[in-house]
Design a protein around this nucleic acid. Structure first.
Lengths: 223, 223
DNA sequence: TAGATTGTTAATCGATTAACAATC
DNA sequence: TAGATTGTTAATCGATTAACAATC
């Protein structure tokens, strides 16, 4: 009998979506099995790491053969919880809210956007990706009558934490936060804070570092 | 004399934008100095880690007093290369491209969006955030006549790597990629690949894990 | 069988935490 | 000065890589 519960390290979890994406692509290309060595080449990882990572999910490999792509995809999907569809609401129908509402890959991974809310009367009633923007004042009733798994907070002011608390009180257990102030996870609610600017800032650092190494700029630590 | 070049670990670099954000906020609240202990409480890190991290940038603390917020902000900004403004172009004026074009925090960190391109004739000529969408065919001339530091790829098809290569040939050295296929960094070009779905997927995993721990669901590893 | 490749243990490497002398 | 807090070294912890017996 298999182990009932095995804690998977967060570092591994954070790599799983990328495995999933590459494996989906390989499967689409008609590749039905792959060795850790070849997958490592494609993904620019080490074969050793891939075997260690996949072993956290169970034993799927076949000695002398490799891993079956479709089986791996299935297991990763199940581990990540994207094998079942989940209902999502968006709070904030600004540009980012609209972009996420129309983001096809969400649906592909089982996230169904079932409603979008805003507080701006000029925006309420607009159609965004086949959904009519609702008044955020009506969210209580909506959440009571619909099973909502995830709330996406897409407002641009500092009220994210307040909105998150409201959603938590309504029973929403997961928050995907795009608003500028970090939302702290609590006993009731899981959070992923997204700050797009961080990734661009890191790019900026690396660009500068490259310029220093290439001798185009003088130094990193000044004076 | 100070060291001319000190390699900062990537793990530290990836935390710097978050330090920057919190310190900016503290400064806005009128806090002009802070100890590693207090900053650790606010940011939910350990004081020890903060001191280690900041020491990678130099020695700024004052014994018995702490760190000056504004000095720290300045040093982090310089390290990350956001102390100077950088010119950015966006390729792809779809919803995500538009959202990024209107994303105020980019400007705040010194990233100036100087142009936005698309290949769709229906979109070319539209005004997005005070910029007229240009025909992507005209990008060569534009880049030759303007200093462009970063290219943001916001297309939704699989042509990201091709677009990136074109930009690299035009001399753009940094790519911020939102398109679905990973762009591989090369000798000429630095890349940050962004896959928003990954962060939502991790949220999904954590939600599931929480449900298992709370006894609302049976198991993580099936069968 | 022989070749390929896994699963897993051991070795290495790096990152985080703890501790404390130095010092403002 | 006494109290607070840094900078830094040492200890711990965890993640990655290497190695190889097991096995298809």
């Amino acid at each position: 009998m298999k182990k009932r519960f095995k804690k998977i390290p967060e570092t591994v979890i954070r790599r799983l979506p990328r495995y999933y994406r590459y494996l989906e692509r390989l499967k689409d290309e008609g590749i039905d099995h792959i060795s850790s060595r070849k997958l490592a080449d494609v993904m620019e990882l080490t074969a050793s790491q891939i075997r260690q990572d996949l072993n956290c999910l169970g034993e799927f490999g076949q000695h002398g053969y490799g891993y079956k792509t479709s089986q791996l995809i299935q297991v990763i999907a199940k581990t990540l919880g994207i094998d079942k569809s989940q209902n999502v609401v968006i709070i904030g129908a600004g540009r980012m809210g609209q972009a996420l509402a129309g983001y096809g890959r969400l649906n592909k991974s089982g996230f169904n956007i079932i409603s979008i809310f805003d507080k701006n009367p000029k925006v309420i009633g607009n159609i965004v990706n086949n959904l009519k923007v609702q008044d955020v004042e009506e969210i209580d009733g909506f959440v009571e009558n619909n099973l909502v798994d995830v709330g996406i907070i897409c407002i641009s002011n500092d009220e994210g934490p307040m909105v998150a608390e409201k959603l938590a009180n309504l029973g929403i257990k997961a928050i995907w936060n795009f608003s500028p102030v970090d939302i702290k996870p609590s006993e009731n609610v899981i959070v992923e804070n997204v700050h797009l600017i961080e990734s661009l800032t890191i790019l900026s650092y690396k660009l500068r570092e490259k310029k220093v190494i290439d001798g185009m700029v003088d130094e990193i630590i000044g004076d």
